[in-house]
Design a protein around this nucleic acid. Structure first.
Lengths: 212, 212
DNA sequence: TACATAAGTAAGAGTACTCTAACATTGAGA
DNA sequence: TCTCAATGTTAGAGTACTCTTACTTATGTA
């Protein structure tokens, strides 16, 4: 890992593939999917517009690599946030909402790629793999929150809604639909929203197991 | 309102502006913002690719008109769903989550326009007006759920998270991130998620007002 | 050191789109 | 009925992008 920076050495780049993904993610953050083009990414990376085609068969493949990179980065941040949140399972799961919000605020439109694009095909296995890892991370955290006899499907359902809440909150923030605050304030509110969802869910489980 | 259909009468269309918005919304539903073009909308409406420019100064204006139309339609559906849900305030608010989910499932990618695009500028007052109406509708429903002495800002905050949860759930559905179900099943799960959020929020309010 | 190969460049064909300009048709009111 | 403003049409200039082809340069290995 001697040269992971943006510096270019000469005719050959060194690690153009990785740099294209980095610049692609940055471009997505600035312009969203609509403003994304292979040519722009190439210019940002300081190479000709044909160079990316040595590393990616087409635009779609570069886009997919960026998506996989974004998801992988988010997964890492969520795991890290959970770790820092301490031992309480609810604290740990709720903390992921804050980290997610922070990421979206930092990377703005980049996030719409992951959710406004179809990566379900067989050409996008890397994206699917990263999505699975993200889900697995949340499943682990969620299973510590829910009762021991909760089925896998019920955990998945719960995780899905947790991620929905978190994602929805962060995405709406990007619309400026809220009075501007600092990132910390938004992240804290996201954590509270996650807590509300968790506690509401647990209350419902309790009420279901011992009806009035 | 004698001719609101798609039929064309002759050289002149009759109400091309409205039809462009309709077809634009339909195109957005199929392809998302990335696949949206003035030319395609014109073809769908059966007119030349220059005709839309008689009604909209540029592509952005047509896009904004579509967004305003989408938001207006959603607002109507939410109000209707609340009405049909009966007298209980929680039922009424939670019902909006189901209606929203149903709309997104029916119109798929159309929704990403509203949230993946910037309509905050002074040229997009129509979009902002429709957004305000949607928020007002939810504010009314939310204020019936919360204690009487809740401040406007707190209601707005609560509404924001309610909408986040709902929107996030619906958007993630579009990714096929869930085992496919019928729309009714998804809508019902969205309502439950909204209920969990509402009850969790109310529990927190109660705990705050009478600490242990 | 020779050289095969990986990884870059330049040039451009082909496509799609936005928006404009000049012209055609129609309907509604004077 | 006449006329003109509104609303269509065709043609095309200008732009941006994707992806290919042929060529160039650097690099690692025999």
């Amino acid at each position: 890992m001697s040269r992971s920076t943006t510096q270019r050495r000469g005719y050959h780049h060194g690690d153009l593939r990785a740099e294209l993904v980095r610049e692609g993610i940055a471009l997505l953050a600035e312009t969203g999917v609509a403003g994304f083009s292979v040519a722009k990414v190439a210019i940002r990376a300081g190479v000709s517009s044909a160079a990316p085609y040595r590393h990616f068969p087409d635009r779609e493949a570069l886009l997919a690599a960026c998506a996989a990179g974004i998801i992988a980065e988010i997964t890492g941040l969520l795991a890290e946030a959970a770790e820092e949140a301490g031992p309480d399972p609810v604290d740990r799961l709720a903390a992921t909402a804050g980290a997610y919000t922070r990421y979206v605020l930092d990377h703005r439109a980049g996030i719409d790629l992951v959710y406004a694009h179809d990566f379900t095909g067989p050409h996008h296995l890397a994206v699917q793999e990263q999505s699975r890892r993200l889900t697995d991370t949340l499943m682990d955290l969620a299973s510590a929150v829910l009762p021991d006899d909760t089925s896998w499907a019920e955990i998945a359902d719960f995780v899905y809604v947790h991620l929905s809440t978190t994602h929805g909150y962060a995405v709406l923030l990007l619309k400026g639909a809220r009075p501007p605050q600092d990132a910390d304030g938004h992240a804290a509110r996201a954590v509270t929203a996650a807590r509300d969802h968790i506690s509401g869910h647990l209350v419902r489980l309790r009420d279901r197991s011992m009806p009035s």
